[in-house]
Nucleic acid binder design. Structure first.
Lengths: 122, 122
DNA sequence: CTGCATCCTGAAAGATACTG
DNA sequence: CAGTATCTTTCAGGATGCAG
C-alpha cells in the first residue's frame, strides 16, 4: 500500500495521499489556508510550536505537490500569501472525513491512552 | 491539527487517526487482514520488504488501539491469526476513501515526480 | 516580514541473531 | 511457525542565527 513515509513507490493511492499530507503540519496548514489564513506569519501564530523553518518547508512541499499556490507581492515589507489550488480544494473533503472519524472515536481513544498511562504507573 | 507523527495531543480527530494508521505498514495490514490474510507469515509474504519485527510491532500497536484482535491457537506448530474488530472495520471506509482520492490523482502525481526527477538530472 | 543555512536530536524502521 | 532483544541507520523535524 505504501512503502515509506516518503516512499518511492507511488503505485497505490494511499501512498500518494500520505506523501502529500504526511508531513507533521500539512493537514493543518491546508485547513488554515482554507479558512482564510494566508500569510506565513499568521499561519505561524496559529501553530506556535512549529518552527518557521519547518512551516516553510512544508508549505513548499505543498506547493510542489500542487496543493497550494504561493503569491508574492513585491512590496516593502515583503508580503507572501498562500492559497489553495483546485487540487488542494479537492483534498479537503478527505481530510475532513479523516478528522471526523477521529473525532467520533476521540473519547474512546483518549480513555485508552489514559488507562494505558495508569497501567504504566501501576 | 496534529502535532507529531506520534503526538501527545490527541485533541483533534486527525491526530487520532494519524496515530492509528500513521505507521509505515498499518493501513496495508488492515487492508490485507480485511481481505482474508490473517496469519503473520502470510502477511509478511505480501510485504516482503518489511521486517517481521516491524510487522509484529505494528500489529501490536493496531491491537492496542483496538483495531485488530489477536487470536492464538495453542497448536503445534504455533498458529496466530489477526482479525479486524468492529472498530477496525469502521476505519476501512475512510482508508478506502483516502486510497481512492490518491488513485484519482495518481497519474498526475507520478508525472509530477517524473518531471521533477528529469529536472534534477538536467 | 520574508526565507535560507547549519547543526542537532529523537523516534521509526532495518539488520541480525536469538528463544519457545 | 511464532516472537523478542540489541544494535545501527535514517531522516523528518527542531533550534538557532543570518540575510534580503
Amino acid at each position: 500500500m505504501y512503502e515509506k513515509k516518503i516512499p518511492k513507490d507511488f503505485s497505490c493511492g494511499f501512498s500518494v495521499l500520505m506523501e502529500i499530507i504526511g508531513g507533521k503540519w500539512k493537514s493543518y496548514l491546508l485547513y488554515l489556508i482554507h479558512n482564510g489564513v494566508h500569510r506565513p506569519n499568521e499561519l505561524h501564530k496559529q501553530m506556535p510550536s512549529a518552527t518557521r523553518r519547518v512551516l516553510n518547508m512544508q508549505l513548499r512541499e505543498l506547493e510542489f505537490h500542487g496543493m497550494v499556490k504561493r503569491v508574492i507581492y513585491p512590496e516593502l515589507p515583503p508580503r507572501v500569501e498562500y492559497f489553495l489550488t483546485e487540487f488542494g480544494d479537492s483534498l479537503l473533503p478527505v481530510i475532513f472525513e479523516m478528522n471526523e472519524w477521529g473525532n467520533n472515536h476521540l473519547e474512546r481513544f483518549q480513555k485508552l491512552i489514559t488507562d494505558k498511562q495508569l497501567e504504566a504507573v501501576a
